[in-house]
Design a binder for these strands. Structure first.
Lengths: 255, 255
DNA sequence: CGTAACGTTGATACATCTCAACTACGGTGG
DNA sequence: CCACCGTAGTTGAGATGTATCAACGTTACG
C-alpha cells in the first residue's frame, strides 16, 4: 500500500467526507473520556493539530508488534482491540481488551519500544498521536498533562484489578467480574448496561481470565441456565446484574 | 509521637547526621533509578525542595490505606513494601513488592484517592513528594516529566508481566520467575544477583503468585532438593540462575 | 456447498488447594 | 537464662476445581 493516498490531500470536492476525516477531537464522541477531556476550544485545536492522522485498522490486523519502536500513542476512536504479551511457549497472554476512548501504547514509553502487541478485534479506527509532539504540548497545557496522568494511572489501577481477578477469584467469579466490567464500560460510553456483543472469542476470554475455553463455555452456559444472563453466540444480555455482581464478589446467590 | 522531634532542627552539633537527614536526592544511592534520574544539579535541588520530608515507616506500618486522599507520591529510600488490594472476602491480593528507588502511589492519581494499601515489610524510609508541587515542576523540567512518564510506564509493563505470570504459568514457573525477578532488581541496585533475603513471608509470596502457602513451601523445598537454589528461612541463594530462568520459561531442565 | 474456525458438552486426569500434624524460630516475661 | 507461646514454615494425605482430551454441533465464509 502507498503510504499516502491522493485523497489524503485537504482539497477535495467531497467536503463533508474530508471534514469528517479531518474532524478532530471536538467532533469525536469519545472526547470526554479521552485525552482532550477538559480542554477548551483553543487547546483542543492545538491537540488536534498534533494528531497527524487517523488510521483504520482492519479486524485481526496488528496495530503494533512487540519490539516495534515506540513513537506514537493511539487513541481508539472506534472499535475494539486486544493487547497481549507473548508467553515463552509461543502462546499469548491477553492483558486487556480496549474500546473507544481508551489509549494504547502507554506501556511502551518506559522501554522506548513496545512490549506487547495490539490487534484489532473488529474493523477499527485509531488516532495516531506522536508522543514527542504530545510532550511539547504538555509544556503549556497543564490540563492535558493532568488528563494524561489520569489515564496512565487508571491503566495502572485497571491492571491491579486484573491481578486481583487472576490471583484470587474462582472461575465463576472471574467470568462474572468480566461481564460486569464490560457492562460498566459500555455504560460510560452511552450504551446499554445489559445488552452488548462480545467482540472477542471464548478462547480470548479464557486466555485473558486464565481459564480454558471449555470452562468459559461451561460458565456462560451455567449463568444462562440459572437465568442471570442470556447468551447466544456473541450476543449477551445481563438479566440479573445485581446477582452477577454478587457472584463476582464471591457470594453466589444461586449456589 | 510528636510530629517533629527537636533533632529535626537544622542546627545541631552532629552536623553529619543532620546533613544525612536533610541530604536530598543527590546524596541518595537510588537517584539513578528514581525520579531525579538525569537531572542536573540545579534541577535536582529544585526537586529536593518540594520533597517536604522524609518519613520513617516501621515494619507492618501502613503508608496509606484504601480511600485515603491522594496528594503524595512516595519514593522508597530504604526498605521494602508490599501493596495490596482488598478482596471481597476480607482477604488481600498483593499486587507488588516494592524496593528502594521505586515509586508508590501512582495508581491513585486517576481516582484522587488510594485504591490499594501500602505496608512496610521492614523498617523503611520514604520521601514524601506532594504531587501538586511535582506538577508545578513538570512545567519547566521536561527531563523530570519524562522520567516520571518512564516510571509510570514501567509500572504498567511490570503489571502486565505479573498478569502473564498469574494467567499462564504453572506454580513452578511462577516461583522461578519470582526469584529471577527479585534477583534482577537487586542487581540493578548493586546487590548480589544470587544471594538475598526474602523480606516477605511465604504466605505473602503465595498470595502474590496466586498459590497456597504450602505450595510455596513445597516449591522452594523442591528447588532446594534439585540444587537450583539454597534456602534457609528467608535467606536464598540462587545456585543455578540459568536453570531457574529456563524453569520460568517453561522448560524444566530437571524434569 | 464444503470447509475451517468457533463453540458446546461429557468423561477423565491432574495440578494445586485444603486440612492436619508437626517443627523451628523469636520474642517475652518470669 | 530459661521456659513459654505465638507465628512462620514444613510435610503428608486426601479433596477438588479446572484443565485436558474427545466428540460433536454450529456458524461464517469462500
Amino acid at each position: 500500500m502507498s503510504s499516502l493516498s491522493p485523497s489524503a490531500s485537504p482539497r477535495s470536492s467531497s467536503g463533508a467526507t474530508v471534514q469528517a476525516l479531518r474532524a478532530g477531537c471536538s467532533a469525536c464522541g469519545m472526547h470526554q473520556l479521552c485525552l482532550p477531556m477538559g480542554l477548551d476550544q483553543g487547546d483542543m485545536q492545538r491537540l488536534e493539530q498534533v494528531i497527524n492522522r487517523r488510521r483504520k485498522v482492519k479486524r485481526d490486523e496488528t496495530l503494533y508488534h512487540v519490539n516495534d519502536k515506540f513513537d506514537m500513542l493511539y487513541a481508539i476512536r472506534l472499535g475494539h482491540f486486544k493487547t497481549f504479551q507473548h508467553n515463552p511457549n509461543g502462546g499469548q497472554q491477553i492483558t486487556g481488551f480496549q474500546m473507544a476512548g481508551e489509549l494504547l501504547g502507554m506501556d511502551a514509553i518506559g522501554a522506548g519500544h513496545h512490549l506487547c502487541e495490539a490487534v484489532a478485534l473488529e474493523d477499527s479506527e485509531v488516532c495516531e498521536i506522536p508522543f514527542a509532539s504530545l510532550e511539547d504540548l504538555f509544556r503549556d497545557m497543564p490540563i492535558l498533562l493532568r488528563q494524561f496522568h489520569r489515564m496512565m494511572s487508571l491503566e495502572i489501577s485497571r491492571e491491579q484489578r486484573v491481578m486481583l481477578t487472576l490471583g484470587s477469584m474462582t472461575a465463576q467469579q472471574k467470568m462474572a467480574a468480566f461481564l460486569v466490567n464490560l457492562s460498566s464500560r459500555y455504560v460510560s460510553r452511552g450504551y446499554s448496561s445489559t445488552r452488548f456483543q462480545l467482540r472477542m472469542t471464548r478462547e480470548e476470554i479464557g486466555n485473558y481470565l486464565g481459564l480454558a475455553v471449555e470452562s468459559v463455555s461451561r460458565l456462560l452456559s451455567g449463568f444462562k441456565k440459572t437465568g442471570v444472563i442470556d447468551v447466544n453466540h456473541r450476543d449477551v444480555e445481563l438479566l440479573d446484574l445485581p446477582s452477577l455482581r454478587s457472584i463476582a464478589l464471591g457470594s453466589d446467590p444461586c449456589a
